[in-house]
Design a protein around this nucleic acid. Structure first.
Length: 278
DNA sequence: ACGAGGTCCTGCGAGC
DNA sequence: TGCTCGCAGGACCTCG
C-alpha cells in the first residue's frame, strides 16, 4: 500500500517523536516478515538501542540506530508504522507485527494486516549494497529529465511497469503510476524506450507533481494506510484515475476504463486522452 | 530480455 | 444469513 508519499508522511510524523529515543522490550509477533535476520537477533539488536535518525528510501522507512545498524521496514500493501505516547490498548495490538517500548514513555508499532511487508536489519555495508540496488529518488533535487530518460531507455516493457520497477525508479507504486501517466497523457502500455522527448518531459513533471501533491495531502488512504500518528491521508479525494473506473475523465469527460493487462495490476486510464493499451 | 503466472497473507465486498 | 470468489496500495520467484 504505502508508496513514496505515504512512507514520506509516516517518516515525517515519526521523526520528531523517535529521534534520540531508546527502544525497550522489542517484541516480534510474526517472524514471516523478516528477511535475512532471525527473530532472536533482531530483538537482541533493538533492545536498548537508540534511534539516531529516521528517514525514507523509496517505500521503506529507515531507522538508523546508535549501533550502526539500520532497521528497514517496507510496509508492503497493508503495513502501518505508528507511534503512541503511551502503552498500547488491546485493540491497538491487533495485527501488530513488531512492538517496541520507548524509554521515558511511548510505543512504536509496526502493524500489518496482510504481512506482505518486510523487516530488515542491515549493517553499514549491507545497507550500502541494499540502497545501491534501488533506483534514484524522483523528488531528489538533482534528479532531472535526463535521469528519467536514461532509466526508461533500453527496455521495451510497458512504461507503467517500468516506472513501478524499484530498481529503475524509487517509490512509485500502482496508484501514482496511474495518476502520473494520466497527467502526462501517456498510454500505460507503451514501450518505455519508445517515448519521445516531450513525453518523457511530461512524465517527469507529472511524476514529481503528483508525488509532491500527495505528500502535501498526507498520502492516499483507501483502507489500511495511516500516517505515523494514526491520521488518514486525503489524496484519495484528488485522484484523477485510480479507483475511478467508469467515472468521467476530468479532462475530456469520457468514461475511464480499467485493464489488468499490464503486469496483472489494475490500470485505470482514459482511452481518449491516453490512447488504448494494447 | 521479456511476458506470464504463481507465491507470500488476510479481509472485504459482490454475488449467489 | 452464509458461503465462495475475486480483488486489494508490493515484491519476489520460476518458467518458457
Amino acid at each position: 500500500m504505502p508508496e513514496l508519499p505515504e512512507v514520506e508522511t509516516i517518516v515525517r510524523g515519526l521523526r520528531p517523536r523517535l529521534t534520540g529515543r531508546v527502544l525497550t522490550r522489542p517484541r516480534l509477533f510474526h517472524a514471516d516478515v523478516l528477511s535475512g535476520v532471525t527473530r532472536l537477533r533482531l530483538v537482541r539488536a533493538l533492545a536498548g538501542n537508540r534511534i539516531e535518525e529516521v528517514t525514507r528510501r523509496a517505500k521503506h522507512a529507515v531507522f538508523r540506530m546508535a549501533s550502526g545498524h539500520r532497521l528497514v521496514i517496507q510496509p508492503g500493501m497493508s503495513g502501518a508504522l505508528l507511534v503512541f505516547p503511551r502503552p498500547l490498548r488491546s485493540a491497538e495490538r491487533r495485527y501488530a507485527v513488531l512492538v517496541a517500548g520507548l524509554r521515558k514513555g511511548g510505543t512504536l508499532v509496526y502493524r500489518d494486516v496482510r504481512r506482505l511487508g518486510t523487516v530488515l536489519l542491515l549493517d553499514e555495508p549491507a545497507w550500502r549494497a541494499y540502497t545501491a540496488r534501488i533506483g534514484p529518488e524522483p523528488l531528489a533535487a538533482d534528479f532531472g529529465i535526463g535521469d528519467l530518460a536514461a532509466r526508461l531507455s533500453g527496455t521495451r516493457q510497458a512504461i507503467k511497469k517500468v516506472i513501478m520497477d524499484q530498481r529503475r525508479l524509487a517509490g512509485v507504486g500502482n496508484i501514482y503510476a496511474n495518476e502520473a501517466l494520466f497527467r502526462a497523457r501517456i498510454d500505460p502500455s507503451r514501450a518505455a524506450c519508445r517515448l519521445g522527448q516531450a513525453e518523457v518531459a511530461r512524465l517527469y513533471r507529472a511524476v514529481r507533481a503528483v508525488l509532491t501533491e500527495a505528500i502535501a495531502a498526507q498520502g492516499t488512504t483507501f483502507r489500511d494506510y495511516r500516517t505515523g500518528t494514526g491520521e488518514r491521508g486525503s489524496f484519495q479525494f484528488r485522484l484523477d484515475v485510480y479507483g475511478r473506473e467508469g467515472e468521467p475523465c476530468r479532462r475530456c469527460g469520457g468514461r475511464l476504463a480499467t485493464t489488468h493487462a499490464i503486469d496483472a495490476r489494475s490500470t485505470t486510464f482514459c482511452w481518449r486522452c491516453q490512447g488504448p493499451p494494447r
